[in-house]
């Protein structure tokens, strides 16, 4: 267990010291959201109405942008071979890598969401539920993403390919993530949607490490 904790801390520290990956993802997220008023217009009512879906889609794209970095550095410098050979189960190592990756690319998105909510004229109820849905949803995106990142290691044009593999699988999370926020705004009980989102997270937590670990073993063979 301590080895896994060390791996998480190491990965987070590495990401913080380099900093570029997190900043690029954040920059993409904020800039893309800000682009929408230019395209759609400054109608504040309209912006507030589409804000949940807009933020969710953009967060999903931003989370996907960072995915190809998940295993690539380890794959290129050979430490992935060491991780595959390590005593720890590779499935747990995948979980540790996913946790560190989410902490450095998923969590920062949620932190800046209040600013974007202000810009898009969302109210407090909407904002709270938007953050809650992202808090439950983005880890699922990262976990599904580990499969795509592991499968495309060593592929040509891996960055583009990963979007084709992963985006269709993101659809359920997107549907329920947005539904949770719109339900709360419309005054409907968001409980069932919350449970569905939580269910997706638990399922991804249980299944995706096995698929990603199998893909990693293929990649280093």
């Amino acid at each position: 267990m301590s080895a896994l904790a060390a791996l998480i801390v190491f990965d987070i520290r590495l990401a913080l010291r380099r900093g570029a990956d997190t900043l690029v993802v954040l920059g993409f997220f904020v800039l893309t959201v800000i682009l929408f008023p230019f395209g759609i217009g400054t109608d504040t009512v309209l912006l507030a109405r589409i804000a949940p879906g807009l933020v969710w889609v953009t967060a999903l794209l931003a989370a996907m942008l960072a995915l190809d970095r998940l295993f690539l550095a380890d794959f290129e410098d050979g430490s992935l071979d060491q991780l595959v050979l390590a005593d720890q189960a590779l499935e747990l190592i995948v979980l540790a890598k996913a946790a560190a990756h989410w902490a450095t690319t998923g969590l920062p998105l949620i932190v800046v969401v209040p600013v974007l909510a202000l810009v898009l004229n969302m109210d407090a109820v909407g904002l709270g539920h938007l953050m809650l849905s992202l808090l439950l949803g983005t880890p699922t995106l990262t976990l599904i993403g580990t499969i795509g990142a592991a499968l495309t290691l060593g592929a040509r044009r891996a960055g583009v390919l990963i979007s084709l593999l992963v985006l269709p699988l993101y659809i359920p999370v997107l549907i329920f993530g947005v539904a949770l926020v719109t339900a709360a705004i419309d005054g409907i009980d968001p409980g069932p949607r919350l449970m569905a989102l939580g269910g997706f997270l638990l399922m991804a937590l249980a299944l995706s490490p096995f698929a990603a670990a199998a893909a990693l073993r293929q990649a280093v063979r």
Partner: peptide, 24 residues
């Protein structure tokens, strides 16, 4: 189809695509 065709090593492409089919 894209994943299967994305590797220089045809065998790796086959195995990756098969895994993706199961995930799908």
């Amino acid at each position: 189809m894209a994943l299967g065709a994305a590797f220089d090593d045809a065998d790796r492409g086959n195995r990756a695509a098969a895994l993706l089919a199961l995930v799908g």
